[in-house]
Design a protein around this nucleic acid. Structure first.
Lengths: 211, 211
DNA sequence: GTCTATAAACAGATAGAC
DNA sequence: GTCTATCTGTTTATAGAC
């Protein structure tokens, strides 16, 4: 139910509506009527399918965990052979993350929903932390550790990885500020590339100066 | 009224309650009764002093702009003489920002409120952008431009400054994730220092590799 | 499974005494 | 300026027809 097939029909429509509206306006600010209207169904179906508004929120969290499991895949079977390989893999993952955060068709809703749950301390947060954040961060730490020569789970390495991730996440969270200051109307392909190039340059500079 | 003396009495209590609760739970999720209770007054006083809940939100925004104006001060009169000076000033400002974001007695509420308004696209956002974000970012760009030898308002410079800021902001926004992964219970002095050292090291690595 | 109609709780705003 | 009591609209959840 967490890792299996995607939901269908009215359930899927309501979850899609939940991801979109909860992510955009927040949980409390979203009336059930708006959810039902966006999903082209009636308010009662929320209670029928999920037991209530709160149940829909949890179902959205489960769906996010499922989608992310699909995209991220297993945490890479073999470790890279050389420092150079580790650095390349780190850059590839960082670039993929920027693309996922700034572009992404349905990813936009997924990302917004997670960030909402994070800032609201919502119940879906634990789910996503265990299913995604923790394993992904460990994977990045293993690569960063190999690139710097330090232990993967050392405090410095974990903090270093967070500082790298933070740059990417900020461009999603601070989008309104950034776009206004940059004179952009949004993130199209050109802007995403500019951001990814900047962060890749930072990555190399930071890791090169490390040991 | 925007730059003058701080509010007093019931007005101040309500604004403090607004900053705290709006920042923590969001605007829509905060009932007026909770605001009145925290401010140790009655619900009617919100309408009396601010015209309504929305008015209180704006007053909170104005108060944030006022506090920030106090802390940030004027944008530094003279530019640094050498590249080395520019780098030192950048590091000092970055460290001050980390302390402001992670420590800070009343700053915690102030920061949370701004981030809420940012993510909700609230009306207080424009106020804070003009009063703080834009001038501060310009100041940082001037320093970064001097440190890298590029024009202060070049796209690369503006993006570089955002990537530096993003690291700092993320440690505030992602606090729940970060603390769980690091095994921290919160940000005390030791953790703040560790973060600031990490970001200062990143700053030097990035700017050194720039030109 | 889907829908309409309604119930019960709650929201923000306000009138009017003090 | 402060407060209690109340008004009016909206919310979520549910009962019951189809």
């Amino acid at each position: 139910m967490t890792q299996d097939d995607p939901p269908t029909g009215t359930r899927a429509d309501l979850i899609a509506a939940g991801l979109h509206l909860f992510g955009q306006q927040g949980f409390a600010a979203t009336p059930t009527r708006a959810l039902a209207a966006l999903a082209k169904t009636n308010v009662a179906s929320i209670a029928y399918h999920f037991g209530g508004k709160e149940g829909l929120r949890l179902a959205c969290g489960a769906e996010v965990a499922r989608r992310i499991g699909q995209v991220a895949g297993p945490p890479a079977t073999e470790l890279p052979a050389t420092r150079r390989d580790a650095l390349d893999r780190l850059e590839a993952m960082l670039r993929a993350m920027v693309v996922f955060l700034t572009q992404g068709p349905q990813a936009q809703d997924t990302v917004a929903f997670i960030l909402r749950e994070l800032s609201e301390g919502g119940p879906a947060f634990d789910l996503v932390y265990d299913a995604f954040f923790l394993p992904k961060h460990r994977e990045l730490c293993a690569l960063a550790g190999m690139a710097t020569g330090q232990p993967a789970e050392a405090e410095e390495t974990r903090l270093l990885v967070f500082s790298l991730l933070g740059q990417a996440v900020y461009f999603r969270i601070g989008q309104p500020v950034i776009c206004r200051r940059m004179g952009w109307t949004g993130y199209s392909a050109a802007e995403t590339t500019a951001i990814a190039d900047r962060l890749a340059a930072n990555l190399h500079a930071i890791l090169r100066s490390q040991p």
